[in-house]
Design a protein around this nucleic acid. Structure first.
Lengths: 166, 166
DNA sequence: ATTACTTAATTGACGCGTCAATCATCACCC
DNA sequence: GGGTGATGATTGACGCGTCAATTAAGTAAT
């Protein structure tokens, strides 16, 4: 039996660790730069932007809160907290859903729609400035491929360990 | 004049935006998986781990708080808040510095040192499982290069805009 | 119809991070 | 030595995210 099964497996080398650290730091710095830029230009956070975008694209500017959570890949409680803050700022409002009385529907207010329109161009500009402009088309392709592998691997590793789900 | 100077510059394409989104989501998922794994195996957060690591490597297991902040690349107030939490858990303690009475010195407690030793192997294992194992050596090299470019570009873009620093 | 299960969403507590304000100390210098 | 300003560190307020608990409404089974 060798290292591929279950025995002792090697630790990352110093080089590998350095790349890991750079990876984490860089992605956090970029996230932070995006947040700061968005805040400065449009007064919204990345989370706000995700919510506004999803609602803007939705039929009638309204979505079931669970559908919204699903759409942007958030936990429900996270969304609930965030909607509370956005509602208090008047960007969004919550109403009872017609057919199922436990469901809530989230709707974009006029102010929310305006805010989204105003933040869209700055957001796109920031994506270009902070990310796209840094890389050649070949880099971008390579990165896309690497991300796919990271993602797929992560999925496997989070399933595997103790998946007693039928 | 074309798009390279100051005029209208193109928005990201749909493909580019998709890669951006994947990049952000993946790095957050990985960060989250690391945090969860570390918490489950050793009861520490990634932030705790950074602090413990830096102190463990320091001479006498103690550092000026500003040197510590510098070393791990944190804002001072962030570190101060974090140290408060770690101190209340008994991982770390703060003392007045000898020669400069406004400086504080942070010192690893025995419990902190023990905790660090216990978390080190799980941390390395997680780096391998979540990151290194997902990629071939060539991928890793390519990724390292891309990260360097992102980082360099980010530095330029954050300097440039309005650097009225003498 | 009463009990039991599931599903939708919210809440509260708590850790984390940022920003702006504050406080203490040191350094200078007139 | 008493301003003045820089430096080291802390604090408070607030937004963000997770987890565990809770509320409320639908669904089934007996």
């Amino acid at each position: 039996m060798e290292q591929s099964s279950k025995g002792v497996r090697r630790s990352p080398t110093a080089d590998e660790l350095a790349i890991w650290r750079e990876y984490v730091e860089t992605s956090e710095d970029i996230k932070q730069a995006m947040a700061a830029g968005l805040q400065a230009t449009s007064g919204v956070s990345p989370g706000d932007y995700s919510v506004l975008l999803a609602l803007s694209e939705a039929d009638g500017h309204r979505l079931r809160s669970s559908a919204l959570a699903e759409g942007i890949g958030w936990e429900r409680s996270r969304l609930s907290h965030h909607l509370g803050r956005m509602e208090s700022r008047g960007l969004v409002c919550r109403k009872k859903s017609g057919n199922d009385n436990r469901g809530a529907v989230v709707e974009l207010t006029d102010d929310g729609a305006r805010t989204f329109r105003a933040s869209s161009a700055p957001h796109l500009r920031l994506v270009r400035e902070l990310f796209i402009d840094a890389l050649s088309p070949e880099d971008l392709d390579a990165l896309a491929e690497i991300i796919k592998r990271l993602r797929r691997h992560l999925g496997e590793v989070l399933e595997g360990p103790d998946s007693q789900n039928p």
